[in-house]
Nucleic acid binder design. Sequence first.
RNA 1: UCCUUCUUAGCUCAGCUGGUUAGAGCACAUGACUGUUAAUCAUGGGGUCCCUGGUUCGAGCCCAGGAGAGGGAGCCA
Length: 461
Amino acid sequence: MEHTSVKDLLNAASIGKTAIAKGWVRTKRGNKNVAFIALNDGSTIHNLQLVADPTKFDEETLKKITTGACIRAKGEVVASQGSGQATEMQVSELEVYGEADVDTYPLQKKGHTLEFLREIAHLRPRTNTFGAVLRIRHNMAFAIHKYFNDRGFFYLHSPIITGSDAEGAGEMFRVSVLDAENPPRNEEGKIDYTQDFFGKETNLTVSGQLEGELGAMALGKIYTFGPTFRAENSNTPRHLAEFWMIEPEMAFHDIVDNQDLAEDMLKYLINYALTNCKDDVEFLNNMYDKELLARLQSVVDKPFKRMTYTEAIDVLVPNKAKFEFDVEWGTDLQKEHENFLVSHFGGPVILTDYPKHIKAFYMKQNDDGKTVRAMDVLFPWIGEIIGGSQREENYDKLLQRMNEMHIPEKDLWWYLETRKFGTCPHAGFGLGFERLVLFVTGMSNIRDVIPFPRTPKNAEF
RNA sequence: UCCUUCUUAGCUCAGCUGGUUAGAGCACAUGACUGUUAAUCAUGGGGUCCCUGGUUCGAGCCCAGGAGAGGGAGCCA
């Protein structure tokens, strides 16, 4: 007889059936006459209440059933006499798969701080909070593939090890098999990477975008969804050294199409969570952030405010006195400025057409000679959840910009060739997956929305 | 990387002006209780006061250095 998930056993349709449940004990309580065991198997935030008559089981077995133990229970599913749940199981058989020593098992019935749970990341998925977060994370990943697949995008696997370090997106992690203690050196005394595995310097990718563009200029619409690595010494609740990024890239799309896609996708994903992860989102709403549900619904319902960088400066400058950092045309926006815009317009804001000198080399240059077709989507609290642009498709203009920004042509010859052979207008953006999950779950630290966070000085687990 | 706050029992935290044997709640154990909902009540065990050095008759408390964590900023997604 196969076991049934707790999720299914909690459904009223299970009443009257004899079934087997397997999972981990959350709590046990009771008295001489009756024992209640709350069982969770990860299929849902809710627990199955097992009801056992202590006189029918040997004392040793019951003693081993403690918080954290893994057990199998067989019994009849009945309508619950108590008020906390619709169904419960009247247990006839109990088997303990794995005990959890009460003196050393770190999880208790009572709540723990998120900081403490980070220190026991190997066990934290067993908590309600991380169960909810991880189920939502899965659903968001699935919904992303579904969204793009349903709209004719192809999933392109961009490389994780990259030979170009010219993308300029951040500090990189070197990939090498050379002896770190005693690396081979060339005549100049520098490390000789021609002897390394790939015969050149290689790093972990900081972005799949450039490869994504190659795919878009063949398949039309593609997206990447993979891990990304930044060796920045960033210690904030919004940065990870290893994170997942979604990067759609579309031929024949301009900056407006790009905004339309970004807004539609974000709304789709948030709505997907509201309909498919209702229990988990509600749990997080009740436990951590009472505004969560309302905020998610509001983002789905309202159009995003769209404006140019220049228009945003015009909004910000009259409020100069409120800011710590000066704001004028040409400066990059600080967090406080982004926050101001988001709260001023009461929701997400899409900014476009930034000054070219604060944006990447590949962005399409506007006719004014000053701005480029960049696009940032700013979200409440998160800040920049998406960064993207229409790309410069003109070979000469792209090359000129690369020279101005001292990006070596020889490293990106393959990228330049897309502009040489059958170039076309195209656009795309990058969405930080964890920032999306952060927003959807209402968690406040990005380390709590990825199973095993990688941050400066921390690669445990 | 910068600014700032913190580090005391398994967890969350008190700890007075530097002074005897470092406390509480929860967790855990034992007992009580005829259906509980993070059950309740009673009793009990449990400490490298982050580390190193210094000041002092005396340091959890003051000073210096270090480590780790949180929040804010920068970099960005």
